[in-house]
């Protein structure tokens, strides 16, 4: 027989884990179930699948300019991700590969900036962008995120595992620094890039606060802004909101599953 105390302990642990799992999974479940129910069903607490999926979906595509908002979101997320990866990986490479006396001070200064909450930067950023004429533009939505300090830190840390002798060998093979970066560094570090791509894509897809500041017309709205305006309607249609949420979640889920294996490799360190 098992020790009864150990049995009780294990049961308690199981129960705690089940509760935690329920708390994290239930909102997704409810979102999916909600997409198949009417607003009345949802507000009355119905938590089983209904028959209104088609109706909700039709409503979504008739009331919302879906190609426009999804197009905006894809544009700023994909372009923003490419630019962010380019800028932050170049910075991380530079910080790790090139020695200089001030390198570590500059890097420490950058890390210090991480502690400033984004909300504190909104007013100065807003003034900068409006003076630069970047309000209500795609560039305006993307630019503040491109030199993400956390991603610079991430790339520098991962570059520590990039063998310097590969760079030496490439120099002897006649490559210029940018060619080493393009033809050696990027392919060797592809798992690092894949993990970074997931993080950055999700961050820019889900970005809300800054786009809310910059975007001033319906034509420029991203899907997150559209979701927020659905929720703030005078009588919110929860069926519509739920299907909108489901559709808005799909791209990030897709990106994650496509890059999942590389994501794990990248997080564990990419060079073997």
């Amino acid at each position: 027989m098992k020790n009864p105390l150990a049995l009780i302990g294990s049961l308690l642990a199981q129960a705690a884990l089940w509760i935690a799992a329920f708390i994290s999974v239930f909102p997704f479940y409810w979102m999916i179930v909600g997409a198949t129910n009417t607003a009345n069903d949802i507000t009355s607490g119905k938590a089983s699948f209904g028959t209104h999926l088609v109706e909700n979906t039709t409503k979504f595509f008739t009331t919302i300019d879906a190609p426009r908002v999804f197009g905006n979101s894809f544009l700023v997320s994909i372009l923003g991700t490419i630019l962010t990866l380019a800028v932050t990986s170049l910075a991380g490479y530079g910080f790790e590969i090139f020695r200089s006396r001030t390198r570590d001070q500059i890097f420490a200064g950058l890390l210090l900036l991480l502690s400033i909450p984004f909300a504190a930067l909104i007013v100065p950023l807003f003034m900068m962008f409006s003076r630069a004429g970047l309000m209500n533009t795609y560039a305006g939505i993307m630019l503040p995120g491109i030199a993400a300090i956390f991603m610079i830190f991430y790339f520098r840390q991962n570059t520590k595992s990039f063998p310097h002798e590969l760079r030496d060998a490439a120099l002897l093979d006649g490559l210029k620094e940018w060619q080493i970066f393009l033809y050696i560094y990027i392919p060797v570090m592809r798992s690092t890039y894949a993990a970074a791509m997931i993080i950055v894509f999700m961050t820019s897809w889900n970005a809300y606060l800054w786009p809310l500041m910059v975007v001033q017309t319906n034509e420029m709205k991203t899907i997150t802004l559209q979701l927020a305006s659905l929720a703030s309607a005078y009588t919110p249609d929860y069926g519509l909101i739920m299907i909108a949420n489901v559709l808005a979640t799909l791209p990030t889920v897709l990106v994650f599953f496509l890059l999942q294996r590389r994501f794990v490799e990248g997080m564990l360190g990419s060079v073997k």
Binding site: E165, D168, A169, A170, L172, I184, V188, K272
Partner: peptide, 20 residues
Amino acid sequence: VDASQRGIAMVFQSYALYPH
């Protein structure tokens, strides 16, 4: 003169082969 123009080739301790 640039490393690649010196007419030398080098073999490294870690081999430094391009893994990809």
